Simulated assay, not measured.
Amino acid sequence: MSVADTAVDINNLAIFLADQQLNNLAACASVDCIIICASAVLHSAEVLFQTLQECPTLTRKLVLCGGIGHSTQFLYEAVADHPQFHTLAKAITGLPEAQVLERIFDEFFDGAAVRAAGCQILVEDESTNCGRNAIKSREILERFAFDLKNIILIQDPTMMLRTTASFEHAYKHVENRPHFISCPVFVPQVRPSAQGQLVYAFNSPPMLWDMQRFIDLILGEIPRVRDDENGYGPNGRGFIGHIHVPAEIEDAWRRLQSMSKGTRS
Rank of each mutant, 00 (worst) to 15 (best):
D81L: 10
E124H: 12
S30K: 11
L75G: 07
Q50K: 08
G118K: 15
S127W: 03
Q21D: 11
L122I: 13
N11Q: 08
N129F: 11
I35W: 02
I35V: 15
L122W: 10
I35H: 05
A91K: 15
T93V: 03
A80G: 04
L22F: 10
T57L: 04
L88V: 08
A113C: 06
T72L: 04
F105R: 08
I34S: 01
F108K: 00
V79I: 15
E107M: 09
E102W: 03
P83F: 14
P96L: 08
Y76Q: 12
I15S: 08
L13M: 13
A29Q: 14
R132T: 03
R115I: 11
L42Y: 04
I135A: 13
A80E: 03
C28E: 14
G66M: 03
A45S: 08
Q73P: 00
G67A: 00
A91V: 12
D110T: 14
I35L: 15
Y76N: 07
L42I: 00
T57H: 07
N23D: 13
R115C: 13
L52I: 04
P83Y: 12
T87K: 15
A18K: 02
I15R: 13
A78V: 05
L64Q: 10
S71V: 12
L52Q: 04
K90S: 12
P96W: 08
L64T: 09
S39M: 10
F109G: 04
E124V: 07
E97T: 07
P83R: 11
A38P: 02
I35K: 01
A98C: 12
L101A: 12
